[in-house]
Nucleic acid binder design. Sequence first.
DNA 1: GTCTATACTGAGATAGAC
DNA 2: GTCTATCTCAGTATAGAC
Lengths: 208, 208
Amino acid sequence: MAERSRRRIAGAGRAEILTVARQLFMARGYRAVSTRDIAAAVGMTQPALYHHFSGKEALYVAVLEDELARRSAEMWEVARLEVSPSERLATIAERIATRSRHDLSQMFHDLRTEVSGGTRARIGAGFRDAMLRPMVVILDDMIARGAIGSPEVTGLSVPEMAMFVLGVIRMLTEVESGPARGRQRSPGEVGQITVRLVTLGLAESRTP
Amino acid sequence: MAERSRRRIAGAGRAEILTVARQLFMARGYRAVSTRDIAAAVGMTQPALYHHFSGKEALYVAVLEDELARRSAEMWEVARLEVSPSERLATIAERIATRSRHDLSQMFHDLRTEVSGGTRARIGAGFRDAMLRPMVVILDDMIARGAIGSPEVTGLSVPEMAMFVLGVIRMLTEVESGPARGRQRSPGEVGQITVRLVTLGLAESRTP
DNA sequence: GTCTATACTGAGATAGAC
DNA sequence: GTCTATCTCAGTATAGAC
């Protein structure tokens, strides 16, 4: 079970295709990954994929739904921990940072430009359920504790706050490769800095 | 000078091609725009583009450099206004929000995945000069005034803070189309909320 | 369920006439 | 400087044998 370049991945089937396709799509984006690339990585010929999936977009949808299901499970697990909401926020940021770098940016781009309207709506709804809802639960708890302000004082709805949090995490995990030429941070650091930026922004400190 | 569907844009040349290509590339991304699309929009045939540019990527580079030059001019203009740095920050956010929605996300994605390494390095450097440097000037002023903390207390270098600011603006201008289903905000609102999020995060208020 | 062979398409690029 | 015609390639997808 050592060589897997030419030889087939043991018992390759739908699950193995999904695993391989997920890695490729998340790393390089929908357009940049061909069905031949996927087939080669799995160890089968390109037409063989069509026995398992009706086409490239259908495979992509399956990959996204699989990916969202994994993330959803992880996020709800953290959202339900018996610690303060700020600690849960730090933990969730840490977990997201542990995953490979550009996943979410890649996904948003592909949803916007590469897939059909039906797929976009379907996966958009899945994203809300999988990633936004658990984050909203945490943020609601933070609002209740006074750690952050309500929508009235901040000017953002809670789902928008959740997008803000995801944006902060994205920034922290991408700076190493982006034009700011920042240094790579450990997931733990990402968690700490995320909480700081979300609760304080760049302010000197809470009560100067 | 009314019809421009079939007929040529008056005196079309390099400049007209750049204008049209910029709109298409910024709206739909590099891969999703074909050279035929561009030629058709300008009112010439596809091979005619090759008289003005050596290829698609060369045209894209020219578009990006043109776009960065415009943004740079605008950002330096704001960075030098004789008002407080927070007001300059609000104004810059407002200006960026006025431009069309996905420009920056699109650009980052294309730089990461669609162009050669040489182009990536070249445009990355241009981006630092055009967008990060003026923002860094403003943020330095804010640090000097105590409006925000230094890199030591925030854990972010100033260029990273600049990326954070751009991320906040991006979030505010994209929520309307993203999964959070937020409402469209006026550029003025984007400016106000940006300053708030950058200086306070989601905190209730500065001195509770 | 997987293969070989191949159809079909879109896209980037070149040749050469005008 | 722009056109028509065409090349070449990559990529998705299908047909049909095993």
